[in-house]
Amino acid sequence: MNETVPAAPVSAESMAKQGCEKLGLDAFDALVRRARTCRRFDESMRVPREFLLELAELAHLAPCGANAQRLRFHVVSGAEDCARVFDELAWAGALKDWPGPAEGERPTGYIAILAERAVPGKPAAPITDVDTGIAAQTMMLAARSATPEVAACMFKAFTPHAIDAMGLDNDKYELKLIMAFGVPAETQVIDAIDSNPDGSINYWRDEARVHHVPKRPLADVLL
């Protein structure tokens, strides 16, 4: 009598891949996987102001809570203006004890995401981190879909003078996030969660200066 051999269990990653192929999501899957944060750019190839304005337009069209549309965007593209913004950014959180990219590898454009401060006596829908995150991710994905690709780095940490460096009114606007853009000068890869030689889940770079981004497998985050 022949015994039925149970089928080998299918991993969550394999099932997700099957769904990706079945639904025609291959291109978007590839886009999300390469839309990693970049921290070193080719400063000789400047991002055109027109491109940054288009990214702001796409972020403005993205969904937001109650369709309140309270986010505001400020584009920085000139070399001198970019240098002023760069000086106000906190790079140390990206890689431990790293002061940031050297000259020649710095961003060549910025988009600040801001919110108008509430006016006394005038009710306004709140600005949530969800709205800010959706706008930022929309710009990051759009930038990576361009030809040639443009990469981004998101900053939640900056000095109190960052808004002044942009020539904006701190009494009227609250700076929520700064997006830095440029043509990438490094390779970023998604890696296993335990890939970092120091055993942490922090970003790390190898001898070839490849930027590794440890990610948990799908099975670890499914409940």
Results as ranks from 00 to 15, higher is better:
N2P: 13
E3P: 09
V5F: 06
P9M: 09
M15I: 13
K17S: 15
K22L: 15
L23S: 05
G24W: 07
L25M: 14
L31F: 11
R33P: 01
R36N: 09
R39H: 10
R39M: 12
D42M: 01
S44P: 00
V47S: 00
E50D: 12
L55I: 06
H60F: 11
H60R: 11
A66F: 14
A68I: 12
R70E: 15
R72G: 13
V76P: 00
A79T: 11
A79Y: 04
E80W: 02
D81E: 14
A90I: 14
G93K: 03
G93F: 13
A94E: 14
W98G: 03
P99M: 09
G109T: 10
E116R: 12
K122G: 05
P123Y: 15
A124S: 10
D129C: 12
A135K: 00
A135V: 09
A136D: 00
Q137S: 08
M140S: 14
M140Y: 06
R144Q: 11
A146H: 12
C153K: 00
M154Q: 05
T159G: 09
T159S: 15
H161R: 14
H161Y: 07
D164V: 15
M166G: 04
Y173I: 09
M179A: 13
G182I: 13
I190L: 11
D191G: 08
A192K: 12
S200T: 15
N202T: 15
R209Y: 11
A219Y: 04
